[in-house]
Design a protein around this nucleic acid. Sequence first.
DNA 1: CATGAATGAGTGTTCATTCAT
DNA 2: GATGAATGAACACTCATTCAT
Lengths: 229, 229, 229, 229
Amino acid sequence: MTKTQPVARRSEAPPAPVDTDEKVLLAAGKLFREKGFAATTVREIASAADMLPGSLHYRYSSKDDILVALMKRGVERAIKSVESATAGEPSAIERLRLGLRAHLELLCNGDDSLYVLLFDWRSLTSGALKGVIRERERLESYWEGLLFEAHASGVARPLIDIALVRHFGFGAINWVATWYRPKDGRTPAQIADAFWSFLAFGLLHESARPKDLDTHFAALLAASFKKES
Amino acid sequence: MTKTQPVARRSEAPPAPVDTDEKVLLAAGKLFREKGFAATTVREIASAADMLPGSLHYRYSSKDDILVALMKRGVERAIKSVESATAGEPSAIERLRLGLRAHLELLCNGDDSLYVLLFDWRSLTSGALKGVIRERERLESYWEGLLFEAHASGVARPLIDIALVRHFGFGAINWVATWYRPKDGRTPAQIADAFWSFLAFGLLHESARPKDLDTHFAALLAASFKKES
Amino acid sequence: MTKTQPVARRSEAPPAPVDTDEKVLLAAGKLFREKGFAATTVREIASAADMLPGSLHYRYSSKDDILVALMKRGVERAIKSVESATAGEPSAIERLRLGLRAHLELLCNGDDSLYVLLFDWRSLTSGALKGVIRERERLESYWEGLLFEAHASGVARPLIDIALVRHFGFGAINWVATWYRPKDGRTPAQIADAFWSFLAFGLLHESARPKDLDTHFAALLAASFKKES
Amino acid sequence: MTKTQPVARRSEAPPAPVDTDEKVLLAAGKLFREKGFAATTVREIASAADMLPGSLHYRYSSKDDILVALMKRGVERAIKSVESATAGEPSAIERLRLGLRAHLELLCNGDDSLYVLLFDWRSLTSGALKGVIRERERLESYWEGLLFEAHASGVARPLIDIALVRHFGFGAINWVATWYRPKDGRTPAQIADAFWSFLAFGLLHESARPKDLDTHFAALLAASFKKES
DNA sequence: CATGAATGAGTGTTCATTCAT
DNA sequence: GATGAATGAACACTCATTCAT
């Protein structure tokens, strides 16, 4: 639906003119995250991107189109971010931890497109739905792959429905976006690690658990968790 | 904002005429869940409740008002449902399991108001926000109470930020509403139990875990989990 | 498409409140005739009917809807007008003359809906097209009936394709609407009679022509035709 | 308003590149005929002429400008076509017949510009109106000339308002464009002849009619008219 | 000459809300 | 209490036109 991306606009242009399509997506993402797709007006997006509504429609043929473009970007970035965070790490369990960190960091700090993908699902018209679902399935199977590798490495409990674990993990981690406040003092990475510790306890064979697991995590998490008596 | 609920309107009415306010909330809940608050029109709500838009405004002075009423009901029902599910159960750990079941059953099968409370958060105007936040905090601290009791019973790991556990649990469980399909063969209760098992492995002291924990859960979950090699 | 006509609104109302739907159609007809359907804005129609654009859409769900309603009315009035003009006249030839008069008077003086039906044909979207075509065919076959009766009365030339005659007649008469100016001194009735005379000369058997045909028409038409040497 | 036609642009160009202005007018004519002026967008014209909207405005400074250019061409072609069809024919009556044929053939088969001139009259803004009216009057007086010659040849009925006859003839013939379908089996020439026969019967002196007029036309028209009992 | 991104006034339409009845 | 016609601001979107390149 999006117009074909004009090739290499102004490659020799001034410092950081920021691609115009990008500006729109950035502004739309911010607004969709704050107020939701349906409650955001095209005029708001345009004015946040320093354009006029007409100019916006020159690049995206409809409001839905912006949503779809944003969501596809959300999937892409999520996969790319997790991929590059886990690349080169030999331990499957550790890859899981690093992947969770990357996903949550993207979701909390970086990119509204992932948030919109995850939380504005219902705003997709059935026409656009299919295209985005296909993309989203790529993300889901990527995570199932990570989980499968962890399981295949032999340290996980036997009774696992991987899709179910993915759903629980996705839910817990994605939900962070609804309550995370940067000023609370915990970084997304710390939160992700904390969640991983809960997950791991549930995932690991009894034998795979370090004898000193509690103290092991104590060291890891002490910094960020506020103690309670 | 909601007009004060007239008590027992038409007490002498036919068998089960369903309270009119109730009909509106029921219809609104269904629509808000399906399409979101902003994408739902007052006319749709009215027609789904067999009324005319004008009549609807007689009962709820604004669209926001319906949302707020719905959300407050969502909190109330969620608390009531978990309360009655856990009442009388002596084991704090078991109370946790039963509470999760109750919450998820309400969310999946029963009541759209809980779903709307959890997923249409951003649609609240700042004016109404405060009132709902206060209600919602009651729900959250109810859960924190459950978790605290479990922790206080001495079986939980030492390093716990209760609010964090609550967030993770809330996320994982609430997220079920985004993927749960009744026809998939798993009941909300089974899903809740499965999640509780993962949570428990992460929560419990090493010593508090039954030696035969894996087989214990095997019996519990085998019915619903598909095996993998 | 039009909303179901509210029954008997304000039957006991003030003198001449003019039915609101009627007011819209009247205003729309005038504007469509002057500028064409596509060049007329809904706002113009609304303001000409003393309403606001929103109120207009309450009655007609779209601009197209107004056009369709107008056209259907055009057909209806055209048929009714010709019917009542010819009713009771025993001579088929005379019925033809009276019918032409009635049609042209409606087109020139009375009703923009007929004009719009005839001249804004291309503005119909294919969806609405079918419905109007069916109506329009009623008008066309009514005229073919009139022509057939004239022919069957035995006075017409043998070689006649009735549909063709209807097309020529329709064209000549309808076209009057493109050049007729009330101030030019000729009434629609006179113009229609003049056309009928041309048509009749072509339609009638040699034997059916009065010997004094020229002078006969001279009396009829002298008043309105400007002489030329 | 049209930019002065640059003479012989790119005289050394490939075989038959079709003049660019011509391509625009051709495309515009087709679209205006199909959908009307107001319902046709400049972008559609440009894309049908294999150009970009910006480039189109370089040649025609406005959309109105295209309409005016098209209409002027319509007049020119109509006159030229009738002129060359009647040139050399000594009989005024026969010139009339040939002229009708030429006009109708142009209107049905050849050129959308004539159609647009005749049927998109209302789309002209008052500014452009004057210029086109002057042109159109040339066409009208050309036809009045033809009619006058026929009348002056002494065979026509005495009581004739030439402008009126022209109007009727124009209407009947132009209207053909609204119902003519090439596949119906009748050619524009046959239709024009048929109309001329009706017109002639009305136009001619009693004495000027061949005694065997009916059979005379029978031969002429039998091929195309379907008989009826 | 030609382009195509940008413009902004204006389009048909929606919709929460009002209010006379 | 209930109605439904009316409202008008706002909506997503269009499109003839401009202009820097």
